[in-house]
Write a protein that binds this DNA or RNA. Structure first.
Lengths: 211, 211
DNA sequence: TTGATTTTGCAACTCATAGTTGCAAAGATA
DNA sequence: TATCTTTGCAACTATGAGTTGCAAAATCAA
């Protein structure tokens, strides 16, 4: 029974103000716990969605006590936000200079499609489309996505422009939103796999539209 | 205190089997109640999203007792499904023969954009992107959307083909998904209004890609 | 007007889950 | 070994989903 909340007996406390805990002593905070919980959260998010997500179920699945979750993240929303934030910070869309705009577009499309196929991608997509999960995290997601997806895309367009494959009046952001949007339509609305043949059709239209 | 659950005193009941209630007598089921509840449900769905949707709050907002809701729809999911189903059955995308493919595409795009601007459109979009709301209704939504959006689109493509504005190897469904997908990207991800200028940029790329 | 029939509001329940609290035990450092 | 922090555990409160029984209201038919 250490450190009664006031030690009301004798010897006044050294520091009556709330001191911040020092992190170099004591049992270390288990990284596996944090990781396991966030992983499970993502899986729940991807499978049942944010509406049916249950902290107690996550705790059971991660083999961790519920209190250990609430000690790290104050609310369910914060937990979801943390899980999504981790996805976002680890997100990096691959880019490659294939030598042709067609090749670059195909590569980018397959990269996005691959991400949307993972639990993290599913979870993120749902979160972004539902402001309600957590407005702040949805905003962050939009910012990060724009940033991460933006720079490879800009580079791609610059290369294409140098090769004379990109007309001046075609807005890169519009074209990118058409590619990604078509993928969203295919995956989330039609619930069909974005096959190579399908992606080829999209890229063909974009190519003619842009050169 | 009428109709004790068995009338255990005298005179055996005429029909011991459970008879279905006849609908031509008694107090009629209030249509305003149903309408108000579904309207409020859509608003809730559009504003706070399916995750935070509360039946009790809907009941308060619709000025109806909670039990009256549960007597019509057995669960929260069923309520959401009913609200969305009503949207779907009332959904009809306007179509118009403007005389040119560019005009037709612009009109279709603005029609979709207008729908996405309403609460019903917001609610539907969220539901479709979250299988978790109700798998069955999400599936229905996809089917209906394809059906409703498909036929105007097919007519549009036929007209364009007759005018020689549509090349044979361009898949109409792909092009449609690019248009709608770009709109989704713009509205849900970028959270920006699909202005006429922006829509013009999309249509310009599509036009060149398709002719 | 009365009786039969159905819907509605109301209040009181059960149950699951979000979130909290106090304490003892488990690890870690010095 | 002494100190410190994290963890598990059990018990708690609060809220909202979904249920139930009953009285009042509304409708039609005799």
């Amino acid at each position: 029974m250490p450190s009664a909340k006031r030690a009301a007996t004798h010897r006044a406390p050294r520091k009556p103000v709330a001191r911040s805990p020092r992190r170099d002593v004591g049992r270390p905070r288990g990284e596996p716990v944090t990781e396991a919980v966030l992983d499970r959260t993502l899986e729940e998010l991807a499978s049942v969605g944010p509406a049916q997500l249950s902290v107690e179920r996550i705790a059971r699945a991660a083999e961790v006590n519920k209190t250990s979750i609430y000690r790290r993240w104050p609310t369910r929303e914060a937990l979801v936000a943390a899980a999504l934030e981790r996805v976002l910070t680890h997100l990096s869309l691959a880019q490659k200079d294939t030598g042709s705009l067609r090749g670059d577009l195909l590569f980018l499309g397959e990269s996005v499609a691959g991400f949307l196929d993972q639990p993290a991608g599913q979870a993120l997509m749902r979160a972004v489309f539902m402001e309600a999960v957590a407005p702040s995290i949805a905003a962050l997601a939009r910012r990060q996505l724009e940033e991460r997806a933006g720079s490879p895309a800009v580079a791609m367009v610059l290369r294409a422009r140098a090769r004379g494959e990109w007309r001046d009046d075609a807005d890169p952001k519009v074209v990118l939103s058409m590619l990604v949007g078509a993928l969203l339509h295919r995956v989330a609305l039609e619930r069909q796999r974005p096959t190579r043949a399908w992606l080829g059709g999209v890229v063909a239209v974009l190519l003619r539209g842009v050169t």
